[in-house]
Design a protein around this nucleic acid. Sequence first.
DNA 1: CGTTGGGTTGATCGACCTCAATAAAAGTGG
DNA 2: CCACTTTTATTGAGGTCGATCAACCCAACG
Lengths: 252, 252
Amino acid sequence: MDIEAVSDVASAVHQQAAHQCQKDPLSHDCAHCRVRNLSICGALTDEEVNVLDKISRSMCFDARSTLFEQDEPADVVYNITSGSVRLYKLLPDGRRQIVGFALPGDFLGLALSEKNMFSADALTHVTVCQFSRTAFSAMLEQKPHFLRRLLSMTSHELTLAQDQMVILGRRTAEEKVAAFLIGLRKRWARLNATSVHIPLPMTRQDIGDFLGLTVETVSRMLTRLAREKTIVIVPDGVRLLDVARIESMVEN
Amino acid sequence: MDIEAVSDVASAVHQQAAHQCQKDPLSHDCAHCRVRNLSICGALTDEEVNVLDKISRSMCFDARSTLFEQDEPADVVYNITSGSVRLYKLLPDGRRQIVGFALPGDFLGLALSEKNMFSADALTHVTVCQFSRTAFSAMLEQKPHFLRRLLSMTSHELTLAQDQMVILGRRTAEEKVAAFLIGLRKRWARLNATSVHIPLPMTRQDIGDFLGLTVETVSRMLTRLAREKTIVIVPDGVRLLDVARIESMVEN
DNA sequence: CGTTGGGTTGATCGACCTCAATAAAAGTGG
DNA sequence: CCACTTTTATTGAGGTCGATCAACCCAACG
């Protein structure tokens, strides 16, 4: 299994390289980055962001390609600049739990651990800033307010994870789907202005694997919400018709 | 509701004071603290720990008393020095999700937020070091390696929370109970030497509310494990008979 | 003792899963 | 641009795991 694991990693890296798209040098401009204030870079001054710039590499991934895989060595960390990513853990028998969806401004590699704690793959075309973990870590040591920012982002993730525990452990299927939509709406609202339209770059299966439900149940609950005029299902997402109603389903 | 909320907080604080036991001045000795290396203090030198000492207050709580409540202002943070604490979130209709059990060495208040993200109450007699959040936060600013330690602890909590998501979302009842025992065993092992005996200071109801199960199901699963000689149920805990078997239930 | 809180066990129920069929959408190649 | 396949989504019928409801046990404790 050890030797097999090594070759798995090697082939995964190769696959990643194959799916990874050309670098766009023009997109690499931290000073005019649209997600800078939302991301970890928001803690940095213009001069500091230039330092970060030197250790970063702008790159992108095609939809359905792999950013990294669980248990692989975590040599790099990422800052998402556009697109959506699913983060998941697999059980040996194939059951999957999605632990989160990363959107622009999100940071992948908060744990700064040797190994990736989960797998990540692109749901859409994704652009990122990539950093070597050691270089990034070194910069953290030198800039305490940068470290402080990372702590604040990690704490926030922990809070979201604890909220997700409540959803997974104690919510009904309908409440889970409602909570998912409200949670995603809040996150999109930070990025877009519009707020009743919720893009859903992930499949129903993904939503199910995030909420601890089957595809069929997710589909049925969305259909139910649509039938009672709480939402409308549109291509690539939903539109909220009755925000008050859906929010009342997930109170607290 | 606003006025009521304020009086709720006031009465909660009063209740806390009532349940809180006498300070034991002798117990307050960071230099000889048994959990120092496990806790956030492990990052500090002897001199630094003396500084921390000055802003800390040694205190304790009786079993079943409240340390703090969700949505209350989080003016203080705690380092658990002995005993066990349950951390939970309540839904308006009374459903409860336990988001974790805090053991000696654990830190409460990682989020460093204005409001508590969950409620905490003592399962046993509990001793703690209490810090004012602002004083603690100020110390973090001055000691980057202390901040680094807090980040590392927060990352670890996030990893545990993500593991718990897999358990809540994609595990069967039997697997949940097995995973709970294995997870707790690992945590006790850091503190005690013995490892096949797992103290369970929480009730079956608490275990259920941690795993997204009912009391009855938890009881049935424990009984099943005991019937097939995987564990023995003993007063205040369980003893593992077949570690390999129970570990195989939660592989990955 | 009687009371109370926790734990176990059994019988029944139902929310969600499984299995199956179909529909709709998105590629894919000629 | 149109057949063809593949993937994703929806809908229905039936089954099951864990919830619910209920009874009972037991130890702690005033």
